[in-house]
Every structure is written in structure tokens, then in C-alpha cells.
């Protein structure tokens, strides 16, 4: 089976005051139809830029796609005419944003906004579009959709707004749904509901999902496969179970260490282990030198880490780390 989405060696650069910085440095991702790919990493590591690049929405200038390819069902999207991209957006690729507060247009009723998305891609009447908008609101679990269809965004709660966003994203039954931190701005209880909804829609429509998040818990819950990103590169990639059970890259281990593991016995004694943290922050992209971008924060870093950037190696479960490569080599010999 050919992949639904095949991103290869994608490089995106931005012109900034500090000169040209490489926001994505050789990112490769694959996604099969119906599959869920989790993309994790801290803020500023290139997750959202990857999503925007797939949508063809990198602001240019200052952005520039410096190389690589993005294929959707075999069709090359980089360099495709804007007309074609406009057809694909919304119809074949739907997107959900982080901030449901600001991603709906405040001056239009939500029903009209859903209908708008339908009318852009399908040859149906206004009435028909409205009927479908009502159906979609029901699909995404908005209570009392007959009333809510005429509500303005400010009259809805964050969770309901995110449901409306999802309704818009799936209005044309896309094959790919990109969810860019869809629950970051929501209450924890609502987060779980939204994840349930996304999974439910996935089962019903067979849509493939790219879930962008910094929440390892969400990954454990949702993803089939995971790509861990750091400073514009994929540093570890593979099946979700493998990565969660035996993370190979120190950064992934750090991320997983940040999930609080609550042992009831210890909690009763008030002696929970301290929560792990990764020291430091993602370095500003213009200060990236040669070598592994994570080296400065890595407790295991050795000399070579600061000199040579490690390539992503391994099939199935791939890792970009010198230490791991060395360990694997010694195992084999």
C-alpha cells in the first residue's frame, strides 16, 4: 500500500533579523491511510511549521521551502499551483487549530462558518449546506445543535468551539486531518472528550490523523506511530508502543520522564518521586551550530555529539543519536 502522505527530507527556511534560519531540517514523515501519527516536541521545535508546510500555508516571505518533497497520495504538493492547493485544503486535508477561542471568525454564526466550508468545495445549495452543517454539529456531539447552529463563537465554551472547528475540518470528509495541539487550550476533562471525538471520527470516516502535541499522555492514548521532533529535526520515529516502552533518544526519554507516574503506595506515604525535567530550553534556531542540537541539554552527551549531527538511522524504529548508534553497533558485534 502506498502511503497517504509522504514527506521527504523537507527543509524550510525563514529569513529573520539574525539571517536565514532553518526551521525544518530534513524532516521525513510517512502516514498510511487511516493511521494516526503523533508528532511530539517542545514549543518551537518545528511541529506547527511541519503542519503548515503540508497545508502549503508557510508564509512566504519570510518563509521558504528550501528542499524536499511532500506527496499526498503520490501527488507532489511542493510547487503545486495555488489553485490546486486551494482545492486540496479543506477537501482532502482538514486542520484543527490550537486556540478554539481565536480560530473561529467572531462575526459570523458558527452554522454559517461550517456551511461556508462546504460551499467552498461542493456544489450544493445554501439550504443543503445548512442541513449538512446541522448534521455535522450532531456528529461532533454539540448538544442542542438546532439552537447552537445560530450561535456566535463567543457564546460557546472552549470545548464546544473546538467541536465546531472539528466539524469544519471534517465537513468535506478529508482523507487527512491535521490536529495542531487541539486540546492545549482546554480543560483536562474536555481534552479527553475531544480525543474521544477525534478517535470516533477516525473510526467512522477512516481519516488519517496527524496529532501534534507536546503531551506524551495524548500520544500514548491516540497515536499508532510517533515522530519526536527537536529543533527542526525528527530525532526519533517509530511505532508508538516501541517508543513509549523503550525510548532510544535521550530527548524522548526526557519527555517521557516528564509524565508524572503516580504510584498509589508512594502517594499514600506522600513520597512521590520528584518529577523529572529536561534542563534548559530549545536553543534559538539561529544559534544552532554543527553537531546534535540537543547536545547542550543532554546529560549523556560526549565529544562527537557537539561536532557531528547524528543522522536518523534504523528501520521501523529510527533514532538520530550517536550513543544509540554506538550501542546498536556494539550489540551487533
Amino acid at each position: 500500500m502506498s502511503p497517504l502522505l509522504d514527506v521527504r527530507d523537507l527543509r524550510v527556511e525563514f529569513a529573520t533579523r539574525h539571517g536565514t534560519v532553518t526551521a525544518l531540517d530534513g524532516v521525513s514523515l510517512r502516514l498510511e491511510p487511516g493511521e494516526t501519527l503523533g508528532v511530539v516536541g517542545e514549543s518551537g521545535c518545528g511541529k506547527s511549521i511541519t503542519a503548515l508546510a503540508i497545508m502549503g500555508l508557510i508564509p512566504m516571505p519570510p518563509g521558504r521551502i528550501a528542499g524536499g518533497s511532500i506527496r499526498l497520495d503520490g501527488e507532489e504538493l511542493i510547487g503545486a499551483p495555488e489553485r490546486r492547493l486551494r482545492q486540496l485544503r479543506g477537501r482532502d486535508i482538514g486542520m484543527i487549530f490550537q486556540e478554539p477561542m481565536t480560530s473561529l471568525n467572531p462575526v459570523f454564526r458558527v452554522g454559517d462558518q461550517i456551511a461556508e466550508a462546504i460551499l467552498l468545495h461542493q456544489d450544493v445549495s445554501r439550504d443543503e449546506a445548512r442541513t449538512r452543517a446541522l448534521e455535522l454539529l450532531r456528529t461532533v456531539g454539540v448538544p442542542d445543535p438546532g439552537q447552537r447552529i445560530d450561535a456566535y463563537p463567543h457564546e460557546l465554551s472552549g470545548g464546544l468551539r473546538q467541536r465546531v472547528m472539528i466539524a469544519i475540518a471534517i465537513s468535506c470528509q478529508p482523507r487527512l486531518l491535521i490536529a495542531d495541539e487541539p486540546t492545549t487550550a482546554l480543560d483536562v476533562t474536555v481534552q479527553a472528550q475531544i480525543f474521544d471525538l477525534i478517535r470516533d471520527i477516525q473510526d467512522r470516516l477512516g481519516v488519517a490523523v496527524i496529532l501534534i502535541t507536546h503531551d506524551m499522555g495524548a500520544i500514548a492514548e491516540m497515536a499508532d506511530r510517533v515522530a519526536v521532533m527537536y529543533a527542526g529535526r525528527v530525532v526519533e520515529e517509530g511505532p508508538a508502543d516501541a517508543i513509549l516502552d523503550s525510548p532510544a533518544h535521550p530527548y524522548t526519554r526526557g519527555l517521557i520522564g516528564c509524565i508524572p507516574a503516580i504510584d498509589p503506595a508512594l502517594a499514600a506515604l506522600d513520597r512521590l518521586p520528584p518529577l523529572a525535567e529536561i534542563p534548559g530550553v530549545v536553543p534559538p534556531l539561529h544559534l544552532l551550530g554543527q553537531g546534535c542540537a540537543f547536545a547542550d541539554r543532554c546529560i549523556e552527551a560526549v565529544d562527537i555529539c557537539r561536532k557531528v549531527a547524528p543522522p536518523l538511522t534504523g528501520r521501523g524504529h529510527a533514532v538520530a543519536c550517536h550513543l544509540h548508534a554506538a550501542a546498536a553497533a556494539s550489540e551487533e558485534s
Binding site: R86, R89, S103, L104
Partner: peptide, 14 residues
């Protein structure tokens, strides 16, 4: 620069 403009673009608006 607001998000709903990006969102509009993401549904294929010209």
C-alpha cells in the same frame, strides 16, 4: 495575522 484567517485559508478560501 489572527488565527481565524489561517483557519479560513486552511479550508481552502482564496
Amino acid at each position: 495575522e489572527l488565527e481565524y484567517v489561517t483557519a479560513a485559508r486552511a479550508i481552502g478560501a482564496g
